[in-house]
Amino acid sequence: MSDDLDRRLIVATQAGLPLVPRPYHALAEQLGVTAGEVMARMNAMLERGTIRRIGAVPNHYAIGYTANGMSVWDVPDERIDELGARIGALDFVTHAYHRPRALPDWPYNLFAMVHGGSREEVLTKVGLIRELLGADCRASDVLFSTKILKKTGLRIAG
């Protein structure tokens, strides 16, 4: 669990880093601490993995990835870690997860996100995943996003 200053830093930066020449100094002033303290906390959170990375979060559509397909697969539970690792290593897969099934409506336990410039390109890549899975694929589907309804990211109360 993070302490209070970490939490206040998260609240202050979750919508973005200040776009001023000395952003960590601006945060320090806002939070009533020194810039050295802010930078030390940011570095510590990066080291612990509380901050995954600092940088730009692109809108996939705006940078040309106009098709995004969530491919979902029903594979044997005892094989999933080996298969998941191989699918995660494919360069066109941006996320890969083992998730629980929701039977009877949802038999799929392996999720792999595929981005591309068109549905056809995504489907071609999904075909490569299907080939890789071979007989371990018992059922599959691809869900294309047709609209971003919300994309704000994490928002904890200030």
């Binding site: 669990m1 993070s2 970490d6 939490r7 998260i10 930066t13 979750q14 919508a15 973005g16 880093l17 776009l19 940011m42 959170m45 612990r48 993995g49 509380t50 901050i51 995954r52 990375r53 600092i54 940088g55 730009a56 979060v57 692109p58 809108n59 705006a62 940078i63 994309k151 704000t152 990211g153 994490l154 904890i156």
Partner: peptide
């Protein structure tokens, strides 16, 4: 809206 955000990406599981 080319970028949705610029700043730290938090892994809230770690907190």
């Amino acid at each position: 809206k080319v970028l949705t955000r610029f700043g730290p990406m938090f892994q809230i599981e770690r907190m």
